[in-house]
Amino acid sequence: MQISPQSSAGKDLPARQAVMALLARAGIDELQAALERLSPVPAATDLRPAESGLVMVRARTGGDGASFNLGEASVARAAVRLEGGAEGFGYRLGRDIAAARAAAILDALWQDPAYRASVEMALGPVRGRLAEEAGLVRAETAATKVEFFTLVRGED
């Protein structure tokens, strides 16, 4: 099935990208919990069956130069339409197509101004968990920072 490219409203785009990034990092349990909090939600039909596949991950020579193919990563994706509502998409690393579909439903709900605030609120715990995990990595890594000291030679 052909899905026409969406002309996303420009001013909402960064916010939608941020919520899609959050959805991509949420576990299936977290996504289902968010959907439950929002229930009842309109029925969703698949624009395309949820599926898993690959994305070639690219990097740059020297970190900042010409690009090269580093290796592939598995990716799950889903596309849905809500009854009387928007089209939603889920793209995430891994092969959890149920999570991709739940993310697509939440993406579609988010585009509805009536739901947007409550979707953001329902995803609050995910945002909190991710910030906490990244903060812990930073703090634990910071504890392994080398503090050099210079040995003074007593020659004069």
Binding site: S8, A21, A24, R25, F89, G94
Partner: peptide, 9 residues
């Protein structure tokens, strides 16, 4: 199909 960049994780 979206016409923009998506963060996958």
């Amino acid at each position: 199909e979206l016409g923009f960049e998506v963060s996958l994780g």
